[in-house]
């Protein structure tokens, strides 16, 4: 297989990591909305943790992106 083609496939596979981040975001916001629905008074306090959690979850997808870019450099 051509090295460039393999690199392109590898980059595509690295993008699969976004799926995990998507699941994470879904779980995060789903649970957050559930929690706020149960305890609307805690919204302000929860919002802080939601955004922090979002940044963490999002970062996971971006690690995949970095990997893709690294592969791009190796091609």
């Amino acid at each position: 297989m051509d090295a460039t083609a393999a690199a392109l496939i590898g980059m595509g596979l690295a993008a699969l990591g976004f799926a995990g981040s998507g699941v994470g975001l879904g779980v995060l916001f789903g649970k957050a909305i559930e929690a706020i629905a149960r305890q609307p008074a805690a919204e302000a306090q929860l919002a802080k943790y939601i955004w922090i959690g979002m940044a963490f979850v999002e970062a996971v997808a971006l690690y995949g992106l970095v990997v893709a870019f690294i592969i791009m450099g190796k091609a």
């Binding site: 940044a55 963490f56 999002e58 970062a59 971006l62 690690y63 992106l65 970095v66 870019f69």
Partner: peptide, 13 residues
């Protein structure tokens, strides 16, 4: 590593 890559990757992406 995670601290650096998180910020860098977010901005880059």
């Amino acid at each position: 590593v995670s601290l650096a890559v998180r910020l860098f990757a977010n901005m880059t992406a």
